[in-house]
Design a protein around this nucleic acid. Structure first.
Lengths: 322, 322
DNA sequence: CCCCATTACGTAGCACGTAACAATG
DNA sequence: CATTGTTACGTGCTACGTAATGGGG
């Protein structure tokens, strides 16, 4: 059994069980992958993949279990590499983080500035994406950890560390009916439901905080447009496509470009931003530091507890609200 | 990084950091081991072993952590093999158990008879040894699990599953003063302390149940001889070397060879026999069956819970007493 | 002076890539 | 007919074994 063979089968499930695609992703040849998979199956004495003719269609029971174990093994190998790098050069390395536009643009800058000062020789990589893309990156080992606001459902088998809570704001043109309502009685979900909305792509499905707030009142929001970027959302609100619903921390209180941001923290319950880590992974020392800079209550012990499987006791209601 | 390299460094710590000895144990050449270790150190960029001149004297901090992770990785690889074998031939394979003489001779026979009938194509291997030897076998991956009565201290980082409790008997020549005492007031620790004892090698250290029973009363037993085998102990009691203290289940109630066994369950608190498993390992289906045949309350879920780290809730006081 | 780790060097095995082939939709 | 997986074959890398060298106690 070779580590390569394990890499191949794990990569296979991440590439729709397509040998050609897998080979391309791993910068090797199709026959090589095919052959190594057969070699592993021969050695284990079990078929790992169900084949229809020459097409690989699914994992066998054995395949399911073996791929799972192989992932653990490969993560262990990665951990060994990480430990090596850490003890060779504690302050030199890379840190790859997957996150959303809002985090990258409005929350992370001061954290990263402070981090850069402490670790000038660590090369930072910020990968942006939707929660499902972020989950993909994390599962594929492309990033060290993720900072995610919604879509916890995507992060099965990962350690979720609550960082802070955040509330929403409603973006409307100056003089919009909701603007006046906001000054008088305050905005309500019912009032919002009467207008087309412009919001985050990932914030509008049924499991999201936003989606649930409407569903609870038997309302179905009309989403005119969804984007992952506040600036894009602003643009379309200005164009009159609808009312923007965004993270409050992403907008100023003062009007800009004829748009005003109305505090909607009383309308929608706050969402929680999490740091997401693959269970069992090893982290660089500076990663712990980054995490604690981002969320002061997440010290090394707390993170280690989450990594080793136990859900740490964090009082979500005591988290800072932004 | 190659799996071989991980095997080499893990084997190194099991062989006193001696390259020659390690190479011999792995049926390969010293230079091969030496070179692969250097290759791994080069790849990781850290020395794993502290060398004084050309002598390897200890593990570095990095080495400590890497060896630990490497063990996990290798165990994962073993698990993959196990899963393969299981799904290829559920009823064919090997089962290696490490245990003490008493278990092998007096407790296991009916279990093994039943197991053999259910799984005639499983080759059983019974490895005997002292608790520390048993722990060594388990840590080295030489056996699938252990059945141990004492010396829990040896089994750091292992999953311990209580199976049953057992009490002791005192072996004396017919007509011995303790024989009469037993019929009148009953034996006491104090009475026993007046005679030289013959008992199990591993049962006489300070942490053992036996040792503690004496220590609690401020007594120090005089151990004339210790052996791992009841038949050996009988022999020396017959020779008049001292009074035997053995597991009750290892002796008949009726006299034999001029020796009588006196129930000492009221004198010493019962000991508990455990099945010991390496955390995180994968077991063959028939192994689960063997375990449950041995201790009916240890079903598959219970064993899996212990393997995955959680200590299962087993009421020790409710276990059968033998 | 013995034991042990490392260096040097030759070989055999195997993983990988190119090319050709088979099968499925 | 296009896409995908497998077989065939040649090559270059490397792990491994034998032999020789260097250091410590």
């Amino acid at each position: 059994m070779k580590l390569q063979q394990l890499r191949y089968i794990v990569a296979m499930v991440r590439h729709d069980l397509n040998v050609s695609q897998t080979a391309e992703a791993l910068f090797t040849s199709q026959p090589g992958v095919s052959k190594q998979i057969r070699a592993l199956e021969d050695e284990l004495g079990v078929e790992l993949f169900n084949r229809r003719g020459k097409q690989i269609v699914s994992l066998t029971d054995a395949g399911e279990r073996v791929v799972e174990l192989a992932s653990d093994v490969l993560q262990g190998v990665e951990s060994i590499r990480t430990v090596g790098r850490e003890l060779a050069n504690p302050n030199v390395g890379e840190l790859a983080i997957a996150t959303t536009h809002t985090q990258a643009r409005y929350v992370l800058p001061p954290v990263i500035a402070q981090f850069r000062e402490a670790y000038p020789h660590v090369s930072l990589q910020l990968h942006q994406g939707t929660p499902s893309q972020i989950a993909e990156m994390l599962a594929g080992g492309d990033v060290d950890f993720a900072i995610s606001t919604e879509g916890q459902a995507h992060f099965e088998d990962m350690a979720l560390l609550p960082c802070y809570r955040w509330s929403r704001a409603v973006l409307v043109p100056d003089g919009h009916p909701l603007h006046r309502l906001h000054r008088l009685d305050g905005i309500t979900v019912e009032a919002l439901a009467q207008y087309p909305l412009v919001s985050y792509t990932f914030g509008v499905d049924a499991q999201s905080t936003l989606g649930k707030a409407f569903a609870e009142r038997g309302l179905k929001p009309h989403i005119a447009l969804s984007a992952s970027d506040v600036e894009v959302i602003r643009t379309y609100v200005k164009l009159g496509l609808g009312v923007g619903v965004v993270a409050r921390l992403a907008v100023d209180d003062s009007p800009r470009d004829g748009l005003v941001a109305l505090d909607a923290s009383a309308v929608f319950p706050p969402s929680t931003t999490h740091i997401v880590l693959p269970r069992g992974a090893a982290l660089r020392g500076y990663s712990y530091d980054f995490i604690q800079t981002f969320a002061a209550h997440l010290d090394r012990d707390c993170v280690d507890a989450a990594l080793s499987g136990g859900q740490p006791t964090i009082d979500v209601d005591a988290l800072p609200l932004r």
